[in-house]
Amino acid sequence: MKPLPLVWFGALALAACSQSTPETPAAAKPAPAPAASAAKTAGVAARAKARPAFTPPAEADLPAGPLGEEIRLGRAIFTDTPEHARDYVGNGLSCSNCHLDAGRLANSAPLWGAWGMYPQYRKKNGHVNSFGERLQGCFRFSMNGKAPPLDSDVIVALESYAWWMSKGAPNGVKLAGAGYPKENFKPPQPPDYARGAAVYAKDCALCHGADGQGQQVAGRNVFPPLWGPQSFNWGAGMHQLDNAAAFIKANMPLSRGGTLSDQDAWDVAMYMDAHERPQDPRYAGDVAATRVRYHDTAMSLYGTVVNGHLLGSGAAK
C-alpha cells in the first residue's frame, strides 16, 4: 500500500483506540517542574555512566570440539536465519538485521547485553521468561514465524552462542551498550510522518528502497524490508516508536550511526512504523480489543487511524 499522511499526535499522545472514538488523543501528562526535570536527567545520566563496560570474546577464540560446533551453529542461525532455521521463520529477516555485527555491536541490543538479564518477568507475555523463551518470541514476532521448541537444535544453538558471547560478563547487571540507548531520548517535537518521509528519502531509501521493501541478492536480504509482508509483524518490539527511534539514532544509516538528529530519528521511526505489516499473532478478530490488551501505549501505532485507515486492519498477508 502507498504511504498515507499521518494524523496529528500531540506530544506523543497517539490516538486511543476504541470502537467509538478511535482518533481521540490520549490525555497528555503535565510537564515536570524544571528543577525536577533537571534532577531526573542527571540521575539517568549517572546511572548510564555507572554501567560497566564489556567486550565480548573475539571470534578467533571460539572453542574447538562439540561445544564450539554448537556455538558456530548458533552464529550461523543468527546471521542467516532463513537458511538455518527455515522451519520457524515467516519472512526473510535474520536476527542480525536488528542485532548488528552478528549480535556483537553495542547499542544494537547485543547478545552479551541480554544473556545475563534472564530469567526476568516480561509484561509482554505476563510471566517470568527464560532466555530461551525470549528467543522464541523473536521467531514469533520479529520473524513472523513460529516458536522453535525450547529443546530444539535452533534454540540450544542460539543459547550456546549467546552464552559464549557473554563469557565474563556479570549476571543480572545492565551493561553499557546493552539494548538500544533510550534513556533521556525524547524528540524536541512530536514525531511527524511528513518530516519522516523526507528523512527516509534522503537517508534510508538508498538501502531499503523507496517502497521500504529492502534489497535482495540471490533471494537473500542484503538490506531488510521495513514494512509489508516480508517485514516484522505488529507484535515485534521494533514496531514501537521508542525502540525504532533509538535503534535508528544509534545505528543508522548503516556505518553512520549517530549522525541523524534526535528529531530525525523519531520522525523516520514514525514514518516506518506507520506502514502496514503482518498482523500481531495475538490478534483474536478485533483490532480495538487487541490494542487495548497488547498495544495500549503511546509508542504503538497499532490500532490508530492514519488518514482513515486503521493500522492493523489491513495487515499484509
Rank of each mutant, 00 (worst) to 15 (best):
L12E: 08
L12T: 03
A13Y: 13
A15I: 00
A16F: 05
C17K: 02
S20G: 10
A26E: 12
A39P: 06
A39H: 10
A45K: 11
A53K: 08
T55W: 11
P56K: 05
P56H: 09
D61Y: 06
E70S: 14
L73D: 04
D80P: 07
P82F: 02
E83K: 15
N91S: 07
C95P: 04
D101Y: 05
R104Y: 00
L105W: 01
L105T: 10
P110Q: 02
A114E: 09
G116R: 02
P119A: 10
Y121V: 12
N125L: 13
F141S: 09
P148T: 03
D151L: 03
D151W: 02
S160C: 02
G172E: 07
K174W: 11
A176W: 14
A178T: 10
P181N: 03
P188T: 01
P190T: 08
A194L: 09
R195I: 07
G214E: 00
Q215D: 10
A218W: 10
R220Q: 12
S231Q: 04
F232V: 05
N233C: 06
W234K: 01
M238L: 14
K249D: 05
G257D: 00
V268N: 00
A269C: 01
H275S: 13
H275R: 13
R277T: 07
P278C: 10
V292H: 11
Y294A: 04
H295E: 06
M299Q: 15
H309F: 13
L310P: 05
